[in-house]
Design a protein around this nucleic acid. Structure first.
Lengths: 196, 196
DNA sequence: GCAACTACGGTACTCGCCGTACCGTAAGTT
DNA sequence: AACTTACGGTACGGCGAGTACCGTAGTTGC
């Protein structure tokens, strides 16, 4: 075929990543083979292995291309914000990208080096929006300042994630989100002072 | 050679499972290969595949042999019980068996059929001890009866599990357990009535 | 404009391991 | 004893990760 000129450096790297992303969205991480990516990018495995040490690294790099930030909800009251935020996360984890993320987390197999690269999208960099939303609620006097604690703030999303990883549900029903918010999250953050 | 007589049925099945358990504890699920199990059991892959459809099924079956129930703590007050229960879980997840469980959860890759078989050891059959401990606290008047709700009761252990699956820590430091108990769990279950 | 270097493309390979097929033979069955 | 069933041995197909080698195109320096 000859795409005129032989690609090098950044151009080739982008082509590989595009191919990897395509494979990832079409077939998931399980279907992401080095041979297919190479073929799709119109190159060979050599060029891939010069850039990423193994399949997982390539998968993670490709996955990062999928991440996109959603605007923070602001409904004026805590319950609405929290529920909306949780629905956002649920949609994300239920989407093809979420399935890929779950595959990657599985493939990383607890290797902290790889998990760290996925945390920006899944881990507790996700604490930021929760702290923001809670901060607004504190300012409104809805919530005690003690709730501005990463472990407390992220309880809801951790419980939701548990639905996915421990139960393997493709998507969490809205009831579950409501239950998490009303039975756990709001009672927790709305406490007045410390335990008595 | 020649272990006198050729084994059949249950005897052979036990031998295979013993071999699989040994491989699992020595090399983890990643190192559990059908060939090695067959060799170790003094048989061949045929005998295995007649009993389990694939490697994961064998791995799960072998893992189930590792499960053992620990006695429920009873310190006379909720905080002690909860912390002790959490330490129990932490030790379990930090042990070789815990590492294997994590590998299996990863390999199951969210397939609900397989996850269901692992839930007895990891999922919300684990709710029972928490409900028991909370029930005692309710009887003592330490806790409001509303806390006797599976999702509420298991919050602590879900948060702990999150440390493992999302952060990939080999073991959770005791500080974290204390923090989960004091910052989240106790404030949550010790609430007086519903949120106000 | 020419040489030297670097990186791409092509290909072919090793290796590990899952899963299957075939077949002779020992164990249980009647 | 004849029959059936399951084990043991072995060999193989298939796939995919990762490596090696080499000719050649693109880039860089002179």
């Amino acid at each position: 075929m000859a795409g005129q000129t032989r690609r090098r450096g950044a151009a080739l790297e982008e082509a590989i990543l595009r191919a990897a992303v395509a494979e990832l969205t079409e077939s998931g991480y399980a279907g992401l083979t080095m041979d297919k990516v190479a073929a799709r990018a119109g190159t060979n495995k050599n060029a891939i292995y010069r850039r990423w040490p193994n399949r997982l690294a390539l998968g993670i790099a490709a996955y990062k291309q999928l991440g996109k930030a959603a605007p923070l909800p602001d409904t004026g009251e805590l319950r609405g914000d929290v529920l909306e935020l949780l629905r956002l996360v649920n949609r994300n984890w239920s989407s093809p990208a979420g399935a890929v993320l779950r595959e990657l987390l599985a493939a990383a197999g607890g290797a902290a080096e790889f998990l760290a690269q996925l945390q920006d999208q899944s881990g507790d960099a996700a604490a930021a929006p929760w702290l923001t939303v809670l901060g607004r609620a504190v300012a409104r006097g809805e919530v005690a300042p003690e709730a501005l604690h990463p472990r407390v703030a992220t309880v809801a999303v951790v419980l939701l994630r548990n639905e996915f990883v421990a139960r393997g549900v493709p998507t969490a029903p809205d009831d579950v989100l409501v239950e998490i918010v009303d039975e756990v999250y709001l009672p927790l953050v709305r406490r007045r002072g410390r335990a008595g």
